[in-house]
Structures are given as structure tokens and as C-alpha cells.
């Protein structure tokens, strides 16, 4: 029995997209972190959600915890938030996806729910430990809205290439 190549490409892609998020945020910080809004790039959640939906993964929770831990250690230095949030996203995506037949719209909706949840939980934790004091209204208009718009655009652009990629290598 052949082992599908996706088994290796899933973790590799996960870390690649994670670093891509950081590199993009730095290179385009003038456009992404302005005075009136700030965008959080979450391409690695896109990769995670699409892999969970389109292929049978080997150990999704293990890799989710790993990638969350790396995010916390490397980007924020506060260990915990993403280590807890990313496995939760995997669980939710699996649960939600089991009710539907795969299609562009279904994956898009699941992805948007996931992004909203990630952004909101991350805000709650940061508000709790005193790293931000922005109000809920500010959070929704300045961070959540633009983040959803950006990630939606990225999803629309990347959906077909990523789906082809996963289909090719999960055989």
C-alpha cells in the first residue's frame, strides 16, 4: 500500500504558510497595520481547514498543537493562546464538515466561521491578560471586519490551486 504524499505535505505546508503570514505582515505592514484598521493574516488556517476538509489526515490534532505552539513561541512569546485555539479549530471544522457535502460555498462558510472564532478568542485572551484595552466595538470594526475581508479575498484566490494540489497528492 502506498502512503499518500499529503502525509508529508500537510505539516510542511502548515509551517510554510505560518511563516508566510509573518513575512507578509512584515513586508506589507504599511498596508496591513494602519491607523484605522489592522489585518491579521491567517493563511495557515486556510491550509489547515482545506486539508481537514479534502483529505484524510494522519494526526491532525498533533500537528495543530505543534503549529499553535510555534506561533505562540515565535511570534508573540506568550505560550498558550494558539496552542489551545488551533486544535479547537480542527475539531470544529471536522464536526461542521460532517453535516455537509463538499463544495466551494460550504468550505468558505466554515473557513469564515473559523477565522471569526480565532480572531475573537485571541482578542478575548489578550484583553484578559492586559495586552489590549480596545473595546468590543473597536475590535469588531477595526480588526474583525478587515481581517475577515482580507482572509476571504485570500481564500477566493487560493481555493482552486490549493484544492488541485491536495487532490493531486492525496491519491
Amino acid at each position: 500500500m502506498r502512503i499518500p504524499k499529503m502525509r508529508y505535505f500537510f505539516p510542511l505546508g502548515l509551517f510554510f504558510t505560518l511563516f508566510l503570514d509573518g513575512a507578509l505582515s512584515n513586508a506589507f505592514s504599511k498596508q496591513m497595520f494602519t491607523l484605522s484598521f489592522s489585518i491579521e493574516s491567517r493563511i495557515f488556517i486556510l491550509w489547515l481547514v482545506m486539508c481537514v476538509c479534502f483529505t484524510d489526515l494522519n494526526r491532525p490534532y498533533l500537528w495543530a498543537i505543534c503549529v499553535g505552539l510555534v506561533f505562540d513561541l515565535y511570534y508573540t512569546g506568550i505560550i498558550g493562546p494558539f496552542t489551545m485555539i488551533v486544535p479547537l479549530i480542527v475539531y470544529l471544522t471536522k464536526t461542521m464538515y460532517s453535516f455537509f457535502k463538499p463544495s466551494f460555498i460550504v468550505v468558505l462558510l466554515i473557513y469564515l466561521i473559523d477565522i471569526t472564532l480565532v480572531t475573537f478568542l485571541f482578542y478575548l485572551i489578550n484583553a484578559m491578560i492586559g495586552f489590549t484595552n480596545s473595546s468590543m466595538a473597536d475590535f469588531i470594526s477595526m480588526t474583525l471586519g478587515p481581517t475577515l475581508a482580507y482572509n476571504l479575498a485570500v481564500f477566493v484566490v487560493l481555493y482552486i490551486p490549493v484544492q488541485r494540489f491536495i487532490e493531486t497528492f492525496s491519491r
Partner: peptide, 15 residues
């Protein structure tokens, strides 16, 4: 040189 920036609104952090 700056390698990357935390993709987060709450941590204005650069590596």
C-alpha cells in the same frame, strides 16, 4: 534586520 512581524493586532512585535 527585521525578519517578520507578529500577524496580530494586539502584539506590535517584530522579530
Amino acid at each position: 534586520y527585521a525578519i517578520s512581524r507578529a500577524p496580530s493586532s494586539w502584539q506590535n512585535q517584530v522579530t
